[in-house]
Amino acid sequence: MAGETLPIVGQTTAPAGGGTLEDIAEEVVRFPGGGIALLRTDALFHWAQKSSMWPLTFGLACCAIEMMATFAGRYDLDRFGMILRPTPRQSDLMIIAGTVTIKMAPRIRTLYDQMAHPKWVISMGSCANSGDHYRNVYSVVPGVDHVIPVDIYVAGCPPTPEALLEGVFALQRKVMEGNRAGA
C-alpha cells in the first residue's frame, strides 16, 4: 500500500488540510510490498478525530431543519465520517442549532459534560451565536458560549447547509491544528 492515498470517502478534494496520509506524515518510506510512514502520533490522532466526528445534534429551533437538510441526501455529511449519535456518550461534536433558552441551558451543560474527551462544539445560527434578535428577551441566553465553550460559530438565520458544511470544514482544519475551545 506504499504511497497510496487514503481519501476521505466520497470526497474528491480534501476540504480540510490533511486528507491523505502523506499530508500528515513527515516521511513515507516506500519499498515493494509495503511502506513505513513516519509521523507524530498527535498528527495521526488529529487526523482520525477530524475524519470521524460523530455529532450529538441539539436541534432547538428552526436551525435544526437546516441541520437535518445538511445530514440528508443532498449534502450528506456522512461523506465526511459524520454519523449522528443520539447519546452524548458516543459523540465528540455538539451542534447547537437554535435558540438557547435559560431553561434549556442547564440541560445543554449536562449533555456537554457527559461527552467524552476530546469534544468540540459548533454554534449554528445567530441565536446560538449571540441570541440575535432574542438577545434581550426574558427567556433567552445571549449566546450558547455563556453555557459551554464554542469552537466554531456558523453565521446565518438560519445558516444554509453550505454554511454549516463550511463550519464543519473549518472545525476539521482546527482539529488538525490541535486547537480546541473546550480544552
Binding site: I102, K103, A105, P106, R109, G131, R135, N136, V137, Y138, S139, V140, V141, P142, H146, V147
Partner: peptide
C-alpha cells in the same frame, strides 16, 4: 409552566426590566 422554577419575577409585567439582558451565568 414555562419559566424555570427559580426565575425572578413575572416577565410579561410592564414593570419587568426588559432593557436588562437576562444574563445566564452557569
Amino acid at each position: 409552566i414555562l419559566m424555570p422554577d427559580d426565575y425572578p419575577g413575572h416577565p410579561l409585567r410592564k414593570s419587568f426590566a426588559m432593557d436588562t439582558p437576562w444574563g445566564y451565568r452557569p
